[in-house]
Each structure stands twice: as C-alpha cells, then as structure tokens.
Amino acid sequence: MKVIAIGNIGKAPTPEQRQQIMPREVPATLKLYLDGKIEQFWFRQDKPGVVFLMNVESLEQAKATVEALPLVTDGFATYELMQVGPLAPLGMLIQGK
C-alpha cells in the first residue's frame, strides 16, 4: 500500500532543541528509507516539514511509523496520512474495457 505522509511542524524547536533532536531524527528517517518503508521523501516548499511516499502494509503501520520519529515523539511535528493508488479511471481508455 502506498501512503503519502505530510509532515507539519507545529512549534519549531529552538536551535538548542534542534541540536538534540536532529541527530536522532535524520538516522531514524534514513533507516526507514533503507528498510523500504519510506520510498521517496521531499522537503516542503510552502512551510517547514517533509512529505514521505511510504510503502507500508496499512494506514495503521504508516501511523505507527511516523509517530515513532523523534520530531513527533518530542511534540514538534504531526503527520497527515493519505492512502493513494493507481489512477483507476485510466482503465476506461484501454480498448475493450
């Protein structure tokens, strides 16, 4: 299942807090990428946060995965989750369907 996880920074960490959190956040995110749970990731251009394209078994697994990240556990970030899939109406364009 593909899930888009849209991260929002509720309250920005102070520079001191950022120095404590990011050395945990970045490796945790990289591990999820290397484990295949995060397929792609981007930095938001409209405001602070990230967007992940996740490859998971369920929305519950996606939720548990992002909620374990340090920025979330420390109260700085939240994620909106959205299940996505193939653009099914394109099948109508295939002859015989």
Score class of each variant (00 low, 15 high):
L30H: 12
R44H: 06
K37G: 06
P48S: 09
I94A: 14
R44Y: 06
V26G: 15
G91Y: 13
K47I: 14
P23V: 02
L32V: 01
F52Y: 07
Y79C: 07
L81R: 02
E25N: 01
R18P: 11
I4S: 00
S58V: 02
V72P: 02
V72A: 03
Q83S: 10
M82V: 10
F76I: 09
L69N: 03
E60R: 04
R18I: 14
V72Y: 00
L53M: 08
L90F: 13
M1Q: 06
T29G: 09
F41L: 15
R24A: 05
K47A: 15
G36K: 00
I4G: 00
A88E: 14
Q40N: 15
V72L: 00
V50D: 08
L69F: 04
V84Y: 01
F52G: 04
L59A: 02
A62M: 01
K31R: 00
K2D: 10
P86I: 13
L93N: 14
K97D: 15
Q95Y: 11
G49A: 13
E39P: 06
Y79G: 09
K63R: 05
P13G: 12
M1K: 07
Q20H: 12
Q19D: 12
T73I: 05
A88Y: 13
I94G: 11
Q19E: 13
E67N: 05
Q83V: 11
D35A: 05
Q61K: 06
A64L: 03
T29R: 10
L87I: 08
E57W: 06
L90V: 13
M82D: 05
V26T: 15
K2W: 11
K2C: 07
P15L: 11
V50C: 08
Q83E: 12
G75F: 01
Q17K: 13
A88V: 14
G85D: 11
M92C: 12
L69C: 04
F76C: 08
L87A: 09
L30N: 12
N8S: 14
G49E: 12
L30G: 08
P13M: 13
V3A: 04
M92S: 14
M54E: 05
L87C: 08
P13C: 12
V50W: 09
V3M: 01
V26K: 14
M54H: 04
P48W: 07
G10Y: 09
K63G: 01
L81H: 00
K47P: 14
